[in-house]
């Protein structure tokens, strides 16, 4: 369990990191907090030729709160966002989900953007980004673009990032006065989610997002539903997620969790 050999670049500026990415393309990987990538290197699930360490770039270690959007730079660790004084008021959903994101010992290193770049289907940060309708800021040496979370996350550990791009930041819209709720079932808190659900109040009703079931987190927007209309919507959603059996849970158990947790969260947000 040792990584294959690679060159290591300690980037001293963002341009430098982008230059190496432009030159090396898919042979290079960005190393941020390392809590997912390093494990993949150790298991040789990833064998890049070059690692570009961006954690010494102060310009990426920023949380900006501007005009209804909180933008979290690629160097911001999960523990840093958790300790950000504005979190509870501006991003209550992230405040609820972060304690479920890994453990104290991994949040101290792992970054918010890194978790989204890794795109594990059961991870909390991509789920929160999707539930809030957030976006991913991609940058290469040639261009910058922004993708909605749903367009960025394309499959299990697959994203729309091009080989020469890195995630510069992600932005979460502040849902003013909005209600939200989060619940997860995992073997232990901090382990991978069997099912994680996030609900957010919208102008017309509620959005429910589910992680850990399909290849990507999936969200549905509903009007104010309750009673059997809500049960029917949840049941249809649970089946549309195409749950699979695995080591941790059966597909049926996952569908049950989506229905049960989903109903509680939707009611909580709409109440």
């Amino acid at each position: 369990m040792k990584p294959a050999a690679f060159d290591y670049v300690r980037a001293e500026s963002l341009d430098e990191a982008l230059g190496v990415l432009a030159a090396e393309g898919g042979d290079a990987r960005i190393l941020a907090g390392g809590q997912s990538l390093m494990a993949m290197l150790n298991m040789r699930l990833a064998k890049p030729e070059v690692l570009i360490d961006i954690m010494r770039l102060a310009e990426l270690d920023r949380i900006e709160d501007e005009s209804g959007t909180v933008t979290v730079g690629a160097g911001v660790r999960q523990a840093t966002l958790m300790a950000w004084p504005g979190l509870g008021a501006k991003l209550p959903l992230a405040a609820l989900a972060l304690p479920w994101t890994g453990h104290v010992q991994t949040r101290s290193k792992g970054t918010v953007c890194g978790s989204i770049a890794h795109a594990d289907p059961s991870a909390e940060m991509p789920l929160v980004l999707l539930a809030l309708g957030g976006s991913v800021h991609l940058r290469s040496a040639k261009r910058r673009r922004r993708l909605a979370a749903g367009d960025f996350l394309t499959g299990m550990m697959a994203t729309a990032r091009a080989d020469d791009e890195l995630i510069e930041a992600v932005s979460f819209p502040v849902v003013a006065g909005g209600r939200c709720a989060f619940r997860e079932v995992a073997r232990r808190q901090g382990d991978f989610a069997i099912v994680a659900c996030a609900a957010v109040g919208t102008r017309t009703g509620v959005r429910l997002a589910v992680g850990g079931v399909a290849d990507v987190p999936v969200a549905r927007d509903w009007p104010r539903l309750d009673g059997s209309a809500l049960d029917d919507a949840l049941n249809a959603f649970a089946y549309e997620l195409d749950a699979r059996d695995d080591l941790h849970a059966t597909a049926r158990y996952r569908r049950d969790l989506v229905r049960l947790i989903g109903r509680d969260l939707v009611r909580e947000v709409l109440s």
Partner: peptide, 23 residues
């Protein structure tokens, strides 16, 4: 050696870290 067991936990610049996930 993949960040799960915690046996290698140390601190780096005052932050907890898995030494096995650090170069």
């Amino acid at each position: 050696e993949h960040g799960v067991c915690g046996a290698c936990t140390i601190t780096i610049d005052g932050h907890l870290a898995r030494a096995c996930l650090t170069l």
